[in-house]
Amino acid sequence: MSASIEERLYTIRYKADEQSHLIVKDQEVCAQCPSKDCLFFCPADVYDWDEGTRTLSIAYENCVECGTCRLGCSEQNIEWKYPMGGYGIAYKLG
C-alpha cells in the first residue's frame, strides 16, 4: 500500500502562489555541487536536476514548507522564504 509521491502529494490541499518562495541563489553552485543531497532529502521531491540544461528545477507548488532544504543544502544555496500569507500548504488534518 505504498503510494507514489505524486499520489501522496495529491492528498494535500495547496493554494499555489504565482511566485516561487524557493530560489536557487546560484545555479552554477548547484552544477558544481558533488552530492546534490536535495534530490533525496526533500519529502515532496521539489528538486530535480536536469542534466541537459544543467539546472536545478524547483516544483515550489509541491513544497510542504518543512524547511529541510533550508538547513540541509550543504552549499546553503537555497533562499527559503515563507509563501505569501494564505498561500502554500493548507492541511485539512495535519
Partner: peptide, 11 residues
C-alpha cells in the same frame, strides 16, 4: 486495508 487520507512533513 487503509487508504492514505493525507501526507504531511514537518521539521
Amino acid at each position: 486495508g487503509g487508504e492514505v487520507e493525507e501526507y504531511a512533513a514537518h521539521l
